[in-house]
Amino acid sequence: MSLVTKAFHSNASAAVILIRAMVGLVFLSEGIQKFLYPEIRGAGRFLKIGLPSPEFLSYFVASFEIVCGILIVLGLFTRLAVLPTITIMLVAIFSTKIPMLPEDGFWSMAHAARTDFSMLLGSIYLLIVGAGPLSIDAVLFWKKSRQQTKT
């Protein structure tokens, strides 16, 4: 089995489609909202939390959220698509949630970060297990891997 085939192969159950739907649709929705409501979800939010080049960065992140969200929902290049989502969530946690700890305390931070942690862990899960059998990855790569193991 080639390295590429291994990267897209998955032994996950068909139920992984639920995790793909949760992670992918949340990222898709959040990316779209950064374009629709830039003052509160996009550049305005990025400016408020002190990120550099907030206008460029918000559209850059939103584009990744939309593209990766769609790829995750479809189960296409899933393991590659979750790499940016993991990065986005780590930046979100470290730039917006961890700074809450000194002033607001752990429980307030934990409450505010619940979606961030869920999206981070869901993305890591998909990185580990792959897209599962109900995915475009399965159609494109599993068939090829089964043929290679037969020869």
Rank of each mutant, 00 (worst) to 15 (best):
S10F: 05
S10A: 01
N11Y: 06
A15F: 09
V16W: 06
I17Y: 02
L18D: 00
L18S: 05
G24H: 07
V26R: 01
F27P: 03
G31N: 05
Q33V: 04
K34I: 13
K34R: 15
F35T: 06
L36H: 04
Y37H: 09
P38R: 10
P38S: 08
E39M: 07
I40G: 01
G42C: 12
F46L: 15
L57I: 14
I66Y: 03
I66N: 02
V67E: 00
I70C: 03
L71N: 04
I72A: 01
V73M: 03
T78E: 00
R79N: 05
A81S: 12
A81T: 06
V82A: 05
T85W: 03
I86K: 09
T87C: 11
T87N: 03
I88P: 04
M89N: 06
M89W: 00
L90R: 00
L90V: 12
V91N: 10
A92C: 11
F94G: 01
M100Y: 10
F106P: 07
S108Y: 10
A110L: 15
A112G: 10
A112W: 09
A113I: 15
T115W: 09
F117E: 04
S118N: 03
S118A: 15
L120R: 05
L121K: 06
G122I: 02
I124P: 00
Y125K: 09
L126Q: 07
I128M: 00
V139Q: 02
L140N: 06
K144M: 07
S145E: 14
R146M: 13
Q147W: 12
